[in-house]
Write a protein that binds this DNA or RNA. Sequence first.
DNA 1: ATTTCCTATGAATGCGATTTCATTGCAATG
DNA 2: CATTGCAATGAAATCGCATTCATAGGAAAT
Lengths: 361, 361
Amino acid sequence: MVRSNPLMIWWALSGTGTRQVSKTETATARPLTSRQLAALIGVSQSAISRAFTPGSSISSDLRSKILMAARDYGYRPNAIASMLTTRRTNIVGVVVSDMQNPFYPALLAQLTQGLQAAGLQSLFFNISPGASIEDQLHAIRTYNVDAVVIISATVLNERMLTWATEGRRSILLNRLGHEDITTVCCDNTLGFRSLVDHLFETGRRRIGYVAGFTTSGVGLVRYSAFTTRLAELGMRLVGTSTRQAYTHEAGRLSTLDLIPLEPDAIVYASDILALGGIETIRMAGRAKDIAVTGFDDIPMASWPGYSLTTYRQPVREIVDRTVELLLATDIGPPQRHTLQGELMIRATTDPAGWADVPPSA
Amino acid sequence: MVRSNPLMIWWALSGTGTRQVSKTETATARPLTSRQLAALIGVSQSAISRAFTPGSSISSDLRSKILMAARDYGYRPNAIASMLTTRRTNIVGVVVSDMQNPFYPALLAQLTQGLQAAGLQSLFFNISPGASIEDQLHAIRTYNVDAVVIISATVLNERMLTWATEGRRSILLNRLGHEDITTVCCDNTLGFRSLVDHLFETGRRRIGYVAGFTTSGVGLVRYSAFTTRLAELGMRLVGTSTRQAYTHEAGRLSTLDLIPLEPDAIVYASDILALGGIETIRMAGRAKDIAVTGFDDIPMASWPGYSLTTYRQPVREIVDRTVELLLATDIGPPQRHTLQGELMIRATTDPAGWADVPPSA
DNA sequence: ATTTCCTATGAATGCGATTTCATTGCAATG
DNA sequence: CATTGCAATGAAATCGCATTCATAGGAAAT
């Protein structure tokens, strides 16, 4: 709908613009305001506002007249102005700290889509090494976001968290151990129990474990679920290793520690660690003996070259629940939402062994 | 260059933490307004505003008095309100369409960090299949973002683009062929010429090509640079294949088409395609004969298990240039910025061949 | 000492909507 | 027919800050 716009003419004649309108400077043409539109079609400014406010007291005749005029003149309500009076921004602050781990971009993409579908925009706060955490938390408050969703806030301590989220709806994704904030999290315990069960059923008994962060809530829960189930089934924990990171390299290195301990399976705290582990195990030519499991089910896990047995995080459900909580009219006390994932059995736990040759010379 | 940001001042004076907040700051209580603070310490509201506005006419005595009071009472300027008067939001709309390709999350992470460092926030617009493009473009305008950065807008057509970006500073990353918008892009031509040169020098002569989108500007430029250099060096193009996508699977499938043509090297339009190709080539046991090159240098390319020869996109430089352009005070006509990357020589072009065994049974 | 010129400040005026309040007209009721 | 009640509309008052305007008080200049 590229129709010639009376607005431009109006502005040109109105004399408000003493600036020279250059070709590149169309930026300065200010959009029509509700008052101007009202004047143009001879109604009150209130009427314009009502026409755009569902459920307000206005006749459908007048409303449609206004909406058509708005379309013709290219008027659209200024969101900033309405934020000021309604004190609602329809903006959700999304705090991200770890974009290295491929799981998070995937989660992020779905989350923003889910929010968009609900009419919410996402304002990004990147809390990563190199970014100023203080400034970002500060911005969360001055921009008056309606809500805050924190994705894996391993960087934030409890006090920062409560300060940043104070007074606004907020949800912590994939993190545990915070009393004051509602959390939505995959069922890590069930996940690791399933993985151990699967290893047991496929005949593995001597298990190694590679952790990411051993300090975070999720990290602890995963390890604890793992060891508990191991003990219940009478399996042996041959060793644990960590590099305090969820990266491919950390997976490679930690696996080097474990191989000498002769495990017949290694459980990794996340897929990205497991992918690193696969590489080390292949280099060592041990793929025939050592089963591998991950956690997350990132896209790479299902690539034929890896075919990693893992536990799928229910990303869709996490996102849906999150959006649902954000839209709920009544906010109760902080809640814990635990969503069930799914065991994805692939080649790396095949009792017959998987590829035992290093992929690269 | 860092834009002077009122918030910086606040933080500078606020100390490193240990805010002494009066207990009056309950969640339900509305935040203090400048007028209230003014009344509390007996100055005018204008003074409060000036205290937070760098370069405004105010004595340093009064300013520091106000800033300290602000800290004590927990006052902070309401960004929404100031947007209304200044007509500047300090928000950049970031339009993303393809989060599947790992290159984009990486670019995105760096971009948001670069913007943050310059005092700009990023509002996300996810234009992906499943999201309503119309709604998102609409939102870009009603939220009055200061600028728009579009990352790989393969989904948007020319008319949508101009409509969405009309009247605001906007930059297109990694896309070519748009006259009206400033673009910042890696030097694709140089990149593909370098790759071909490298293949020539390492003795390859029969080359295959796997494309992503063959319709996009970047896709065309890459292919054209590739074939041109091939001809110049008298090398032979044995075949081309595409699945119209930049995915691992597309790489796998396209490679299946090419292998029967007996190439001694395959050039892929991007790393993610090449990774898929590596898999197919390994399965076929042809890694000894077929060299592989990618483009982007995503993290996975340097994993030992792949060790993919590729051309690094200068992400840091792209981000820096973008931020610089956004902060520039004078906007000229649309410009083309082409930044040079770097040839990353790894194992997949080793004349001796790389791993020739399928990594997974 | 008088004039001039700044600088620092306060008062007042928007920014562009939402929302309350008051008013009008018309239908329904007695 | 008079009265009540409701729906639709306009006028006016915010919302919280930025900025212009007006002014008081000094310092500098004469």
